[in-house]
């Protein structure tokens, strides 16, 4: 088994804006190893989110490939790509994106629920609730499980989002500016949590425009003008 988990090659993505075409990615390549904590840096609007969405198979590139465990994601049938979204990666967004009608525990559970039919859920229910509870405890929200997102602070919401991303035990965690909306102190705590997870073996790809935040990663890449360049290696 190769040590390489994810490899993107020659990704192109452009958006049509009326008559003009914005070419956001112009041949981006990168690879991530198992257990690695990778940071992609770039200015706002440089295409970091676009790239991360492609890696998470939430969007399709104009050109290029993303291989996960040596399988080309965009060559897979749609149902297999959905399984990838659900099981192999966990996505953490800058704006948390929790479901407002559900409480913290249910927001974590929903990622589990999606793959279950009513029948199979009966069997998986207790284990799933236990797992979700454990994850909330791990992100430090044990006593907030019954709270709705509107009753939680930004940092707490992001913790719930991280717990949700992890509930299906994905091999890869994708984080899109996870601290972008938080103040320095809370952002630091979230980064601490991600570092901890990484130390426990979780592979993480994170994008950020903040060099301070990126410094927690093993390896940093720089995205600018639609292409990738090496931005430094592990300082540790």
């Amino acid at each position: 088994m190769s040590n390489e988990m994810l490899r993107a090659k020659g990704l192109h993505k452009s958006y049509k804006m009326g008559r003009s075409v914005v070419r956001v990615l112009r041949g981006v390549s990168l690879s991530a190893k198992r257990g690695e904590f990778l940071a992609v840096m770039g200015a706002s609007g440089s295409g970091k989110s676009t790239l991360l969405h492609l890696l998470g198979a939430l969007d399709l590139p104009n050109r290029g490939t993303v291989e996960y465990e040596n399988r080309d994601l965009f060559g897979l049938p749609r149902s297999a790509r959905r399984a990838y979204c659900n099981r192999d990666v966990g996505f953490v967004f800058q704006f948390y994106h929790l479901l407002p009608e559900l409480n913290a525990l249910e927001n974590v559970l929903i990622a589990r629920l999606i793959t279950h039919s009513a029948g199979s859920w009966m069997g998986a229910r207790r284990q799933s609730r236990a797992d979700a509870g454990e994850l909330l405890e791990r992100v430090g929200l044990k006593d907030r499980a019954r709270h709705r997102p509107s009753e939680l602070s930004g940092g707490e919401r992001q913790r719930v989002a991280i717990a949700r991303a992890l509930v299906n035990r994905p091999a890869l965690l994708l984080a899109d500016e996870p601290t972008g909306n938080l103040d320095a102190k809370i952002g630091g705590e979230i980064m601490g949590l991600l570092t901890e997870l990484n130390e426990a073996g979780q592979t993480i790809i994170m994008v950020t425009h903040d060099a301070q935040v990126a410094s927690r990663a093993h390896r940093r890449l720089q995205l600018s003008d639609g292409v990738m360049s090496e931005g430094g290696t592990d300082r540790r």
Partner: peptide, 16 residues
């Protein structure tokens, strides 16, 4: 719409 996007990003199908 946003919730639908979230569900889909979590692997929910259009039909679902």
């Amino acid at each position: 719409t946003k919730d639908i996007g979230i569900l889909k990003s979590l692997g929910a199908s259009g039909r679902g």
